[in-house]
Amino acid sequence: MADATFELTAGERQLLECYESIKQVLTDHRDELPPFAERNAVKALAALWQIANGAGTHPGHIYDTGA
């Protein structure tokens, strides 16, 4: 069966970096963030997950980040 990995554009790759970066922040620093930062980061991560998933990566589920 063919490989299901996509060749991404530069813009898409950059968005995936954002996704990974926010995910990392929420994993490492979630408890330190003030409400406005933590809640907005969760909302942003939930949206960026759609890009990671739609781009054929393996994002899994991310409930441990609050998203």
């Binding site: 490989d3 054929g56 393996h58 899994g60």
Partner: peptide, 27 residues
Amino acid sequence: WNPRTETLPREQLDALRLRKLRDHVAW
């Protein structure tokens, strides 16, 4: 909406779904 996945050839679409099925069962 997603030009890449909505036009994937069947074999590649099935490969994508197989991987998702495995992940989903594990989860």
